[in-house]
Design a protein around this nucleic acid. Structure first.
Lengths: 67, 67
DNA sequence: TAAAAGTGTAAAGTATGCTTTGCAAAGGAG
DNA sequence: CTCCTTTGCAAAGCATACTTTACACTTTTA
């Protein structure tokens, strides 16, 4: 799934490691989400969105066909 | 995870079967979500919320400890 | 009251999210 | 140029989401 994670993370000048720590997952998970290897779980999506002060729908793109 | 799925479904007088069909899963999946057997995936959460005309955060309750 | 529709549950199987470890390569800073 | 931080990737393993089938119980409707 397409996301704005990398964009938002870079705006705030955070490393993948720092973001991972902040939302309680490993760096590999953040990498995978940014590289669109898989879709975040609902809870992780919420934690990431909340961390950035946004709604889930503002971080994750559901407009794509197939979702 | 706590959700308002059952409440919203009953308001609209839908069966689990009908809702399941509408969002593209089986009835068992809807039952499990209503009975809090597990948490929906991000995509399913989006489909359900959208079906009810609400934001994800309005259907799923993230306030619980642990999430 | 008998049939039908709706719901809860269970177990086994498949698919996907996340972790762990480890290595390679790219970029910035001294 | 060299070190250090950051990032991409891979494979194996565990946890969880969802399916399929099937059965029991309850509620609605004819």
């Amino acid at each position: 799934m397409k996301t704005r994670i990398q964009e938002l993370r870079k705006q705030r000048k955070l490393s993948q490691e720092e973001l991972a720590l902040a939302v309680g997952v490993t760096r590999q998970t953040i990498t995978s989400l940014e590289r669109e290897k898989y879709t975040a779980s609902l809870v992780l999506a919420y934690k990431i969105a909340t961390y950035f002060g946004l709604a889930i729908e503002e971080v994750f793109d559901f407009s794509e066909a197939g979702y």
